[in-house]
Amino acid sequence: MVAMVNIPETVTAGTVVEVKILISHPMETGFRTGPDGTLVPRNIIPEFRCLYGGEEVFRAEIFPAVAANPFLSFFLRAEQTAEVELLWTDEAGQEHSEARLLTVQ
């Protein structure tokens, strides 16, 4: 389980839709020590992007103060039937993307 995405599937043209995403991630701050007393390396998601029909419509910079399993929510105006892509990479190099088709009637 990587993420739970919540986007309406079908809307009328011009509707403002809310995109909600809950990402399963430890958001390790880099300040904590492990059982052996050494620092656990920092591993957060520094940047999150959303493309709508290939065009970037939302981007967030995330910092170590954000808790584990971050929840992001933002709005976009539905203008054409297109793929909504959500993209992020963590500092351990794990790349993720989720895509949902938003149908405009």
């Binding site: 389980m1 739970m4 919540n6 909600k20 809950l22 399963s24 399993n69 929840f71 929510s73």
Partner: peptide
């Protein structure tokens, strides 16, 4: 449900 991290 969409925001409840327990759902993960």
């Amino acid at each position: 449900e969409a925001a409840n991290p327990g759902m993960l």
